[in-house]
Amino acid sequence: MLGLLTVTAIAIARMDQLFAAVMLFGIYSLLSAALFVVMDAVDVAFTEAAVGAGIATILMLGALALTSREQHAVPRSRHWIALSVVVITGAALIYGTLDMPLYADPNAPAHLHVVPRYLQQSMQEIGIPNVVTSVLASYRGYDTLGETVVIFTAAVGVIGRLGIVPEGVVESKTGGMEHHLILRITAKLMLPLILLFALYVQFHGDFGPGGGFQAGVIFASAFILYGLVFGMRSVTRVAPSIVVRTLAAAGVLIYGGVGVISLLLGGNYLDYNVLGDQPKDGQHLGIFLVEFGVGMTVAASMISLFYAYASYKREE
């Protein structure tokens, strides 16, 4: 499988047509996610599946639609600069991995310090079966807050660059693929199912793989599908872009707000123990709210990214 991954990477590098390269990137994501599954990193695979294979491909296409399809020839001297940068980075990374313990080595530092605590005590300290979720949302609450803000910032950045969709433009570009009968009916059948699945992933992050990030992306993909098939006017009628942007901000605020509340109740920032009568209940509530905030931000950011890409028109 690693071999296939390598072949794909080389093929991407050699491909002149950007469109074909994007297609191969899709394959690359699928492959690496399958690899994560083999290594038992279920949550990572989940994220890779939703983000890497799906949204990233769609956004790359969006970017491609704004630029040109063919790669421009680069002067040879710049090849060398690029090559040396890549080689140096690669060498640094390999040098870094030399210090790293072998895969699945039980004496690795990660297995000696934090991991036993996370694995053994998370059940009694936090009380939810999926360790990844408890690490993500509770032990490493700050990091996750940071990641959420990054996504939000990315959405703000793209909107800032491409501009907020003026309502008039959306009106003029009404069409979708409604006349495509088969797509229309299949999409109608599948949309409620996709939405339901997203909510399921959102609320079952405590038990199985999943959580706010993945759920947000799946939720957004339902809207993206709707937008693709029924056109921008329909999708902005269902979820007006101002509402979506507000929700993106509100998600971050929920996350931050949970932290502030825990401060006010006398705990540390993002220390959920004080939220409930029992520390465990507090953890539950805290993680639930935080995941909800994450899901909201991710979904809303992705949808507004899609809006921004889909309705931007290059000046000819």
Partner: peptide
């Protein structure tokens, strides 16, 4: 079931 429903739709869309 999901794949059986979406598969032909995607194939048809691609062919079209």
């Amino acid at each position: 079931l999901f794949m059986i429903f979406t598969g032909p739709a995607a194939t048809h869309a691609l062919a079209k």
